[in-house]
């Protein structure tokens, strides 16, 4: 079926606008779209979105992570195998993380990573035919915010929720950060790591994030206020 930008699309639909834009300039097609011989076909159910001038993608619901180059992910170290760590990032196979890809690591000076540690890393190589490769440094050799996450609490959620809370227009983190201090790392693989001063505050952050999945911006603000008032009431 023929669809327009902004419509609800199903796999097998095609959009003429992509072809007409593509005739004039280069088109970027994102997740949920696939070029075949004559048309660009939709492969996922969701809403067809466009960003000017020529980027198209389908916003769809998903829980299972498919690794993608350049995304930050939270993984759990499964195994030490020679000079690499095997890290579970929730994809179809484990990712590899070289011990040299930490800040200041040399052959003699190994980073201290144990099995079971939680790691925040960037995906350097992601291909359907190879296992993904992670790094814990940026291109300048600095660790930035990447590396081992100590203490804290990790929970899973849908990939949409991660995209939602990380989007600049979402008021969730802005409202929460004014209420009480906490640290948060969100992996695009549907895992969130949080750490606050007390257990009660940690659980409150977790519940606020999970509760925000199906709420609108205004509802999120009221929910954050509610949680904050409950929290302060109990502590005092």
């Amino acid at each position: 079926m023929k669809v327009k930008v902004g419509d609800v699309v199903l796999p097998g639909d095609y959009c003429d606008e992509i072809a007409s834009v593509g005739a004039k300039s280069k088109v970027l097609i994102g997740p949920g779209l696939k070029k075949e011989i004559d048309h660009v076909f939709v492969t996922k159910a969701g809403v067809l979105k466009k960003r000017n001038p020529s980027t198209f993608w389908v916003d769809s619901y998903q829980k299972r992570y498919i690794p993608c180059r350049g995304e930050n992910a939270i993984g759990i170290v499964h195994q030490k195998a020679g000079d690499i760590y095997r890290v579970d990032i929730g994809g179809s196979c484990t990712a590899s993380l070289s011990y040299l890809s930490f800040e200041g690591a040399t052959k003699k000076n190994r980073p201290e990573v144990q099995i079971g540690d939680v790691i925040y890393a960037k995906i350097l190589v992601a291909s359907k035919d190879m296992e993904p490769e992670l790094v814990c440094v940026d291109s300048h050799g600095k660790k930035g915010c990447l590396g081992v996450l100590s203490d804290g609490f990790v929970f899973k959620c849908s990939l949409n929720l991660i995209r939602k809370i990380l989007s600049p227009s979402c008021p969730l983190l802005d409202s929460l950060k004014n209420e009480w201090p906490f640290e948060l790392a969100a992996g695009m693989n549907g895992r969130i790591w949080i750490k606050a001063n007390t257990l009660r505050e940690t659980i409150a952050v977790g519940n606020a994030i999970l509760g925000a999945e199906y709420l609108s911006d205004d509802e999120i603000k009221t929910m954050c206020n509610n949680i904050a008032s409950i929290l302060t009431g109990h502590i005092s």
């Binding site: 199903l10 796999p11 996922k44 159910a45 829980k63 990939l159």
Partner: peptide, 11 residues
């Protein structure tokens, strides 16, 4: 399958 977000040729 639509809910799981797997890529499909058609429904």
């Amino acid at each position: 399958l639509l809910n799981s977000g797997l890529a499909m040729r058609h429904v």
